[in-house]
Nucleic acid binder design. Structure first.
Lengths: 221, 221
DNA sequence: CGGAATCCTCTTCGATACTG
DNA sequence: CAGTATCGAAGAGGATTCCG
């Protein structure tokens, strides 16, 4: 498996030698949410064959973008995680996500959707335009997804799993409601009234959070 | 030719549906230097088959990233150029170029090298870290390449061809010397002494320009 | 059972030849 | 000059099997 190269002495071409193959950047996206095991990566990337996943991880590892780690006991399982060099890619992924967001159809069709992916774009917006005075840790449970958004210190971040410390707000909902809230087609108040949403903690923090999320408008091709 | 998609309702995945195929971002890179004809694109992207180039241009065009234009008379030839949506990609290309730069081998091997590609990274550095009080238009003639760097108003930019107005400084050199200057392994003074470089105009401006170009250090894999 | 290597089919890529 | 047509080679996708 001799890795293909553009053979150009150019930073962009070199970056694409490492990251430009199919699925590579989506693997990096998954790892921006925190360390993941092989199986979880495969589950979040349907269509990616197990042989390719292994090959991509090998390529990314030898380029110093991802590394293998071991979760602390009692888990003791092997996980893949971003190295510092991989973490450097986060702002580029966010920029690309915002750029691509304008090309997304309003209706997702039957495409796979994950709330954490939308949360990544939200972080990107807050990174770039500030998050006002919204602070705190927000734990989300959207169908089978568990992730949390921390706006405590530094940059906003989405991480998978449950927060290490009790969150300020805990939000339980389903995927359509989450997307409707993010797109501001629905207010938390109305979602609560219709029993589409459950909130633990200070609800006003959630209102404040959603007020900052003005994702860019979508423009059709 | 039904264009392949990741089928994920995610901005990044959508961006990669459009830009993630082989060669696409390098085509965009070429067009960041200004409008180009089909042949010039093909010449700068060896290894890219003409059928693929046509296919990529079609895909990029239908995604609203590139458009067809016609050069003003008497040229009257068809060119491809970035649309505003394509121009939005410039900062991401620059970020990726800087990220990939650290992975470039010191010795280019027998990879294709272009001075304009290095100039793109230089612009990226100046974009991010400021260009001090360096101002002006710098025309470069590096072997068969003609491009210019403008630091007049707004952001630094590299464009191919010759500047519309007479440049403040005109620099003629060869590729190894250009790279040595950019990497600061060589000073303009010494290059001039060794007859590797010719400068028209205020030479101190060139010194000032090169002083700003501290490209990131390269770290091997 | 999770983490991969193997096999096989299908699509895409890359190079050349060809056409308006 | 600006593409289209063609074809062998390489890569992707899916199922299955192998290892620990």
């Amino acid at each position: 498996m001799t890795t293909r190269s553009y053979r150009q002495h150019c930073g962009l071409a070199r970056a694409l030698d490492v990251l430009g193959e199919r699925w590579s950047l989506l693997i990096v996206r998954e790892l921006t949410f925190g360390p993941k095991r092989y199986r979880d990566l495969a589950d979040n990337l349907p269509g990616l064959g197990t042989n390719l996943l292994a090959a991509r991880l090998r390529t990314l590892e030898s380029a110093g973008v991802v590394g293998k780690g071991v979760l602390p006991p009692p888990a003791n399982v092997q996980v893949y995680e971003l190295t510092p060099r991989g973490e450097q890619l986060r702002p580029m992924l966010e920029d690309l996500a915002l750029w691509g967001f304008q090309l997304l159809p309003d209706d997702g069709g039957d495409d796979l959707a994950r709330a954490a992916w939308a949360a990544l774009s939200m972080c990107a917006v807050m990174d770039r335009e500030g998050s006002g005075d919204v602070r705190g840790t927000f734990a989300f449970e959207v169908e089978d997804e568990r992730f949390y958004l921390s706006l405590t210190a530094g940059e906003p971040r989405v991480r998978n799993g449950v927060p290490p410390d009790p969150p300020d707000v805990r939000v339980v909902t389903d995927l359509p409601t989450f997307f409707a809230l993010a797109a501001r087609r629905l207010t938390p108040a109305k979602a609560l009234r219709d029993d589409l949403l459950a909130v633990d903690g200070d609800r006003r923090r959630l209102d404040a959070l959603l007020a900052v999320f003005h994702l860019p408008a979508r423009a059709p091709a």
